[in-house]
């Protein structure tokens, strides 16, 4: 039985449809990603799964219970970390964890949770005096006091510095090792690629792709991506020549050039010959496999962070 099953989820705010017929399933023990730009409907979807909002339509089963009819059964089995860190300023780290521990029937020992999230040294610090990364860790700590089967993390690394982000990724991988199911929303492509076993890409309240990061990229991109920079603009003839060389329909416009290429060695050889003959300088040349960023661009015609 899947950990989460969502079918036909719709959420309207007045006349605005925030979530428009979303369906997906999350398997037990995987890290599942909701990927999409801000305002795509990720948070709304998550908060419906957590029992914080009522869906307009759709059927949602979390940990085997219907979220609308048995919200408390669901809440007992999940851990929730919201986008806002939602802490009490004047409670210490230990007191915050202890408070939430009192809200559940069989809480885990506070010290154990402190240790797991590497918060022991900060145990008697007020929440307001923690760094961004520490606040997020505390926020996850209180999501873990009830030893949940499923953990929801809503954009956990937004606003963190690179080091703190990597630390948090380790924490999330550790949850998976413990056999927990993790549902993670993010608008960072690298984060989704790095962490998620499977993911859905959401845009304008709809699922536009589903699968593992690798599978998704393989499905949509047979080729690698060749990208480089032109130091000077091309005239019309050269632009047409370069377009044909890279296998594109029309002329190429600079200065950033990016093309999907199947025969990488052949294309590169021809590119160098052509550039030398045409007297064009090609710089910052890179060949890479497609990323989720490219996928999003291909699917929506927009970049994720626009």
């Amino acid at each position: 039985m899947p950990a989460i099953e969502v079918s036909g989820l719709v959420k309207d705010y007045g006349t605005v449809r925030a979530v428009d017929g979303v369906s997906f399933a999350v398997e037990e023990g995987e890290i599942f990603g909701l990927l999409g730009p801000n305002g795509a409907g990720k948070t709304t979807t998550m908060e419906i799964l957590e029992g914080l909002r009522r869906p307009t339509a759709g059927r949602i089963q979390v940990a085997g219970f219907d979220v609308v009819r048995q919200p408390n059964e669901v809440k007992r089995r999940i851990g929730v970390q919201l986008q806002a860190t939602a802490l009490f300023d004047l409670l210490t780290v230990r007191e915050t964890i202890a408070l939430y521990a009192q809200f559940v029937p069989n809480p885990r020992p506070v010290d154990e949770v402190l240790k797991e999230l590497a918060l022991e040294e900060k145990a008697s610090t007020y929440a307001k005096d923690l760094s961004g990364g520490q606040k997020q860790r505390l926020s996850i700590a209180i999501a873990l006091v009830n030893d949940p089967q499923i953990v929801f993390l809503d954009e956990p690394t937004t606003g963190l510095d690179p080091q703190a982000r990597r630390n948090l990724w380790d924490t999330i991988r550790a949850l998976k090792r413990q056999g927990k199911t993790v549902v993670l929303s993010t608008h960072y492509m690298d984060e989704a690629q790095e962490l998620c076993d499977r993911l859905i890409v959401i845009d304008h309240g709809r699922v536009i792709a589903e699968g593992s990061p690798k599978e998704l990229i393989r499905r949509h991109f047979e080729a690698s991506i060749v990208q480089f920079r032109l130091d000077e603009p091309l005239d019309a003839q050269r632009a047409a020549e370069l377009g044909a060389l890279l296998g594109q329909d029309g002329p190429v416009s600079g200065p950033e050039v990016s093309a999907q290429v199947e025969d990488v060695p052949g294309v590169l050889a021809r590119l160098f010959t052509w550039a030398a003959a045409a007297g064009v300088t090609v710089s910052e040349l890179a060949v890479r496999t497609a990323s989720l960023e490219d996928l999003f661009l291909k699917l929506t015609g927009r970049s994720l962070r626009e």
Binding site: K75, V80, A84, A86
Partner: peptide
């Protein structure tokens, strides 16, 4: 503002 109320509502309290 900080989402504390929402966080509390995510518990069974």
């Amino acid at each position: 503002d900080r989402g504390v109320l929402k966080r509390l509502r995510a518990t069974t309290v």
